[in-house]
């Protein structure tokens, strides 16, 4: 693997992560560094292990081997209380927004403030309305329920929820999947602005190259559970890696073979 991502001042460090589901190895000794205050985008095809990698960092899935450090703290050896404390540094935008459909939009946005930081509901609501404004949604949207919103609006509410607690680290899981190109660009701009304004460290996973080029400082490519290339965004077009070239140019022919049955 060739990598020119600086390892000094790392916010998140993954070393030799291995994860299997039954006989299938999903992460195969994956190592990756996310520098503090930078935006790293991990690209890769479906089933390459991107989402599993994120879930391992968050402690939702436990890997069999390896080490995950956040601010130098080994997450795999942390107690539940320690992990919950570290998780207060995180914000996350889920692929399908994952809004709580039993709660109004403002309650979704204010959730981390009310439950995680014991803030009073009235105060949290004010912040939630302000964050909704940051993603271009008016206060009246706050009174609606997630089922009453379009996909693009749900994504924006998800983004408002992710930034509501002013997190140090934000994860974006396929932020533009399922959106039209214009709404995708709106979300990309919001991500860039939010990360810049907060000074946060961002880790995104996507297979949308337009999104990756827009929101990344660094890009890494995952293939069969390993990082096969990582470097500054502007160097990806001259990576010299045939796998990366095939992926970013969206070619069917190349070293990456899709399991498609031909008639």
């Amino acid at each position: 693997m060739s990598s020119s991502i600086p390892t000094k001042d790392a916010k998140i460090e993954l070393t030799g992560i291995e994860k299997r589901f039954g006989k299938k190895t999903v992460l195969n000794g994956l190592s990756l560094t996310v520098p503090k205050g930078k935006s790293l985008v991990v690209i890769g095809g479906s089933g390459s292990g991107k989402s599993v990698m994120l879930k391992c960092i968050l402690g939702l899935i436990k890997p069999e081997k390896g080490r995950i450090r956040v601010d130098g703290k080994n997450m795999l050896k942390a107690t539940t209380q320690e992990r919950e404390k570290v998780l207060t540094k995180f914000g996350m935008l889920f692929q399908n927004a994952a809004l709580f459909d039993s709660l109004a939009v403002w309650e979704n946005v204010a959730f981390g403030l009310i439950q995680g930081r014991n803030m009073k509901r009235a105060e949290a609501k004010e912040i939630a309305i302000e964050k909704l404004g940051r993603v271009g949604l008016t206060p009246d949207v706050g009174e609606l329920y997630p089922a009453e919103l379009s996909g693009g609006m749900q994504k924006r509410v998800g983004l408002a929820r992710a930034i509501a607690t002013d997190p140090e680290i934000i994860f974006f899981d396929e932020p533009t999947t399922g959106l039209d190109p214009i709404m995708a660009d709106v979300i990309n701009n919001l991500i860039v602005d939010s990360v810049r304004d907060l000074g946060a460290t961002a880790l995104s996973i996507t297979h949308d190259m337009a999104s990756a080029r827009k929101i990344a400082d660094y890009i890494a490519m995952i293939y069969k559970g390993e990082i096969i290339w990582a470097g500054p965004r502007d160097e990806i077009d001259r990576s010299g890696n045939p796998y990366v070239d095939q992926f970013i140019n969206g070619r069917a022919d190349g070293p990456i073979k899709m399991d498609v049955l031909k008639p």
Partner: peptide, 16 residues
Amino acid sequence: MRVTEQIDALTTLATN
């Protein structure tokens, strides 16, 4: 909530 990742979202919001 499980299949729509809402339970995972709870964890990321530091809520058990």
